[in-house]
Design a protein around this nucleic acid. Structure first.
Lengths: 233, 233
DNA sequence: ACCGGTCGGTGATGGAGATCACACATCGCT
DNA sequence: AGCGATGTGTGATCTCCATCACCGACCGGT
């Protein structure tokens, strides 16, 4: 509910600059070449391992990016917000999509075909740079993911990191220490690479330690510093 | 020793096209703008967290790319071969270098300043595309890394995967099931996210199961399929 | 030959968390 | 109400691997 309001605001904000932070000339071209569609919740834009058809640019909504292990377990790489292109790495490198993209709420998404993307990049260095900046950011965030997930161990540390990270994204809210919990324990587990049960137990522990309070889907973090002290412990 | 020979061959192959797979016009420009230096073994080109100064392009030699966790443990992301640019993501996104780059043998490396890279990319879409292709490949390989390291568990599976991967890179050798082991157990552990002792024990187990044979630093994998059967088990 | 360093093998131990197996709470549906 | 589906809380157990603690091998320097 609350998220819808946010997204409407974002939509309005972006109708101005159309394609986010791109120069108007390129944004217009993009607007002409791209095909914009509205997807319902749970739509799969592309799946890990498929041959790349093109890139998707999130205009409105939220998209979950995940990878799947051989044993069937799932790891959520990140939740993608409007303004971000998806699947660029696959298209540019010609390799299969490296993750699965699935809408988490009704979303408006532009599609740009493989060849159109490459042509645009060749013609407009500025656009190529924009694309590259996004991949670079993705790469950096993936590296952080690796560091956090492999080199920290202790599930509590990872959960604390995740919560603090969410808190930072939450600057828009009136109460900065309060947030809506949009994911299930299962999904949170998939974000920090641990089981549903472990997440449950960790939440219980955090509550006992007064690190978090929870009423319904509302999460309050009274003492951010205390939570941060769990990180790099 | 053997690697030196390989590298000489690669050097010869690249002196032709100079900057690998780039169009000659751009390669020439790059050749003028870039500063090429020879580094000894163990030189640190850049360290994780530093502000980006520019990109490094490996011309000859091998460079180890690693990240370091808060607890001091190290994870080797990959070993970079000639022809690959390093640190691009950091320069393009303006964020700190996301990993540490260290030469593993005497290496010849070109340096291109921050601003020069961006200008070149803006001016030559083709060059920007080349850069983006490399980042994309890095991104894809990092995703695989995540999948393999987090979603497989069982250290033996990871080691088996690593060995099979090395086997694939080894196509140049006369005996395709034979290879030189260039890393210590410690470093192998850092590649698969486990301890030195575990690697030792795994190797012992593999030998007992006749999955590998080892004499000195030469590793023979008599039955590749058997090794692969450990993966996704 | 003597050492100090790095590397590799191997036993013993402990602990974090996966997994299994429940019970309970919602919530939407007919 | 009654019912499945889905999400959550929590105990018991079990497994894998990190860690500690050695020892022996090898190599390069003086």
């Amino acid at each position: 509910m609350a998220t819808h309001v946010v997204n409407e605001a974002q939509k309005l904000a972006t109708t101005d600059k159309t394609f986010c932070d791109l120069p108007p000339a390129i944004a217009d071209t993009l607007e002409q070449e791209a095909l914009t569609t509205t997807y319902p919740t749970g739509a799969v834009l592309f799946a890990e391992g498929q041959a790349p058809r093109g890139v998707f640019i999130v205009r409105r909504g939220r998209v979950k990016l995940s990878i799947c292990g051989s044993d069937g377990r799932t790891l959520i790489l990140r939740i993608v917000d409007p303004g971000c292109p998806l699947g660029v790495a696959a298209v540019v490198s010609g390799r299969p999509y490296e993750a699965t993209a699935e809408t988490q709420e009704p979303s408006e998404i532009s599609f740009l075909r493989h060849s159109d993307l490459l042509n645009l990049m060749r013609q407009h260095g500025e656009f190529a740079l924009w694309v590259t900046q996004h991949i670079s950011a993705d790469y950096a965030s993936t590296c952080r993911e690796i560091r956090d997930l492999i080199l920290s161990d202790s599930a509590s540390e990872k959960l604390a990191r995740l919560l603090v990270g969410w808190l930072d994204q939450n600057t828009a809210s009136k109460n900065p220490s309060q947030m809506k919990l949009a994911l299930t324990h299962e999904e949170i587990g998939q974000m920090i690479g641990s089981s549903r049960e472990t997440v449950s137990r960790l939440f219980a522990g955090f509550k006992k330690q007064r690190l978090i309070q929870q009423t319904g889907s509302t999460l309050v973090i009274p003492d951010r510093v205390a939570l941060e002290s769990l990180i790099t412990a």
